[in-house]
């Protein structure tokens, strides 16, 4: 017990440092609406803290998973994604040195991505996704829409103060690449590349939580 006490005192103090992470969603579209997606979660900036956390049993009353458990969970998720129709070439990487995790895959059309999200959602959310698709590509209008139905602000209000802190400095970035030039985008924070073929949107988690901004966007391409 005493030994544990020491761990908590010395290492527990490290947890006072605020956490920091970024999520990057990168999608490259082909002309026919198929494409390649990479999701990156980069916790490198918090690695000191994470290293300390992994030595503990629990933080803020949450059980801290072991590296083994994390690997297992990711492997399970990847297996699940592999079985989804329209998804192929699923790859993932785990780097516990830098705490960077990626998953990437090819898709035949964006609806397959909606299926992926539905597969990891509750029944209620899955039904919502059917109505309000997270990814949609309207080939007739040549418009790509990124959307979601979650009320993040409301969900966030349910969490306690300690948990909220984790998101204070987090960012979410989306990068979409197309073969045809981009004409316009609805989200004014998004920046269109000089080549007009790529668009990047970086949003602070704080702004998403406060409903000031979101990764929702509608991108119109040249006909």
């Amino acid at each position: 017990m005493h030994k544990k006490g020491i761990n908590y005192i010395f290492i527990g103090l490290l947890i006072l440092c605020t956490s920091c992470f970024e999520i990057i969603e990168e999608v490259s579209f082909n002309k026919d609406g198929s494409g390649h997606v990479t999701l990156t979660m980069n916790l490198s900036k918090s690695k000191t803290k994470l290293n300390s956390m992994l030595l503990l049993d629990s933080v803020n009353n949450y059980k801290v998973p072991s590296k083994q458990e994390i690997r297992q969970r990711i492997a399970q998720a990847v297996e699940k994604v592999k079985r989804i129709q329209g998804i192929s070439n699923v790859k993932n990487s785990i780097d516990f040195g830098e705490y960077i995790f990626t998953v990437s895959c090819d898709f035949t059309d964006v609806d397959a991505l909606n299926t992926v999200i539905s597969n990891f959602s509750t029944k209620k959310d899955a039904a919502m996704i059917k109505k309000q698709k997270h990814f949609s590509f309207d080939t007739a209008k040549n418009t790509f829409t990124r959307n979601y139905h979650y009320d993040i602000s409301a969900a966030f209000k349910k969490t306690n103060m300690e948990d909220r802190k984790v998101f204070e400095t987090a960012t979410m970035t989306t990068i979409y690449r197309f073969e045809t030039p981009i004409v316009s985008s609805q989200n004014t924070t998004a920046k269109i590349a000089g080549s007009k073929k790529a668009i990047m949107l970086r949003v602070n988690a704080q702004d998403i939580i406060k409903n000031k901004n979101s990764i929702k966007n509608q991108i119109k391409l040249q006909n």
């Binding site: 970024e22 990057i24 990168e26 980069n42 490198s44 900036k45 690695k47 000191t48 830098e98 960077i100 990068i175 690449r177 590349a193 000089g194 080549s195 073929k197 790529a198 668009i199 990047m200």
Partner: peptide
């Protein structure tokens, strides 16, 4: 203590 961490920079085509 100074620690190094990994981050990304993007070129004009948003290649990281």
């Amino acid at each position: 203590k100074e620690v190094t961490y990994t981050s990304y920079e993007y070129d004009e085509d948003y290649k990281r």
